[in-house]
Amino acid sequence: MATAPVNDPIHQFKMNSIFDLFKVGDHQISFTNSALFMGITVLVIVGFLLMAAGRGALVPGRLQSVGELWYSFIRKMVDDMLGEEGAMFFPLVFSLFSFVLVANMIGMFPYFFTVTSQLIVTAALAVFVILLVVVVGIWKHGFHWFALFWPSGMPTILKLVVGPIEVISFLSRPVSLGLRLFGNMLAGHIVLKLFAGFVVSMIAAGGIAAVGSIAPMFMAVALTGMEFLVAFLQAFVFAVLTCVYLNDALHPGH
C-alpha cells in the first residue's frame, strides 16, 4: 500500500478500510475511505444549508443567498418538469443533486476521495431512481402504466417492433444514468492525475524536458477548471434526468 507509486493515476480510487464492522455471508462490511467521504459529503451539505438558513433573514446575506439559490434552482426544475404532483419528489431530487454535486466538488481537492468515481455508488443511485419510477408509475396508474411501452396510433406490426425498442430504451436508462456520472468523474480524475504526473516526471528528468513541463502544467490547470464545470454539469444532468424519468411515471401520456 505505502509502496504504491505516487503518480499511479489509479491509486486515487483505491479503497482502504478504516475499520471493519461485520460480515454478511462472505462479504466484509467495512467503514472505508469511500464511506468516510460519503459522510463528509452529507455533513458539508447539511452543515452548509443549516448555516445558510440559520438566521432566516428577510434580506439574505451572502451565505443565505447561496442556500436560497440552491433551493430555488432545484425547486424550479421540479416544478417546471413535474408540475403539482412532483412536489413530493422535490426532497429526493434535491438530495440527489446535492449529494452528487458536493461529492464531485470534494473530489476536486487533492488527496480527497471521489465518491462518485465508484461505479457501485452511481449505479446504485441510478437503479434506485429507475426502480422508483417503476413503483411510482404502477402506484399512480396501475398496470395501465405499462402502456408507456406500447405506442398508440400505429399499425400493430409496427407496435411489435417499437414495443421491444421502448423496453430496451427504458432498461438502458439506469445504465446510461449511472455510467455517465461514473465515467465523467473517473476519466476526469485520471486525466488530471496523468498530466500532473507528467509535470513531476519531466522536471525530474531535467534539461529540455524540465522546461517543456510547462505544457502539461498548463493542461493540468485548464483541466482543473473544466473538471469543476463537469462536476456541476454532471450533478445537474443527473437531477434533470431524474426529473425526466419521474415525469414518465407521473404523466406517461407524454
Binding site: 479503497m15 454478511v24 462479504h27 459522510g39 447539511v46 444549508l49 429526493l92 434535491f94 438530495s95 443511485l125
Partner: peptide, 18 residues
C-alpha cells in the same frame, strides 16, 4: 457491499435531514 451499505445509510440520512 461496504459501499452500498454506507451509501444507503448516508444517503438515507441526507434525504431524511433534507
Amino acid at each position: 457491499p461496504s459501499q452500498l451499505f454506507w451509501l444507503v445509510i448516508f444517503f438515507g440520512a441526507l434525504y431524511f435531514l433534507m
